[in-house]
Simulated scan of single mutants.
Amino acid sequence: MRAVTIRQPWATLIALGEKRFETRSWATKHRGAIAIHAGKAVDKKACAHPAIKTILSKHGYSTPNDLPIGAVIATGVLMDCWQSFIQEAQVVLESAGRIKNITAFEESLGDYTEGRYAWELDQMNILQKPIPAKGYLSLWNWEESIEGN
């Protein structure tokens, strides 16, 4: 299964289904199953943001130290890869001639600078127990049977 490493708290927000787009400087042609790997870095400033702190608390994460790191924490589906642009002072996403608007809340959870890419993630299944794994840059292959042993 393809996997992507994401810093905390963003990885957990995606796993919980609270964040639907992961923004990157590069596009991907991959569509389909994807594992969400929580990297070892935690953005503590982001964790302290009131909206993010509220969401995490609602799901039982009281402090940044409660967030899993260095592990695959969820699986889901990478639905599409959208490119962002600004239209009338609003972020708009485009893919294959289709246009999608995002909420202000979703916009606050990513870097939607014009020309960046938003990976649309859906059907998240948070794992009961995170599976320790070494993360990598870019998309990488994760084999649960190997990493889980």
Rank of each mutant, 00 (worst) to 15 (best):
V72W: 09
M1Y: 05
V77R: 15
Q123D: 14
P68Q: 02
S145G: 03
A33V: 02
G110S: 13
S84G: 05
W142R: 09
S25D: 08
S145L: 07
H30Y: 14
L16E: 09
P68H: 04
I73V: 09
W142S: 05
D122N: 13
S25R: 15
G32W: 10
K58A: 10
T28S: 14
I14T: 07
L121H: 10
D66M: 04
G76K: 14
S84H: 03
W119C: 04
R24N: 05
R2Q: 12
V4S: 00
A38E: 03
I55D: 08
G17T: 03
L67D: 04
S57P: 00
T54M: 05
Y61H: 07
A96K: 15
G115C: 09
A96W: 08
T103K: 13
V77K: 15
A74E: 09
E114N: 10
G115R: 12
F105A: 15
L16G: 04
T63V: 02
I131V: 14
N149C: 11
I69T: 15
A133N: 11
P130I: 05
R20Y: 05
N141K: 12
R20Q: 15
I99P: 00
N125T: 11
P64S: 10
R98N: 13
A46P: 00
C47V: 01
I146W: 11
T12A: 01
Q123T: 06
L67F: 06
I52N: 05
W82R: 05
F21N: 06
P50Y: 06
V91D: 03
E18A: 12
Q123V: 00
K100P: 00
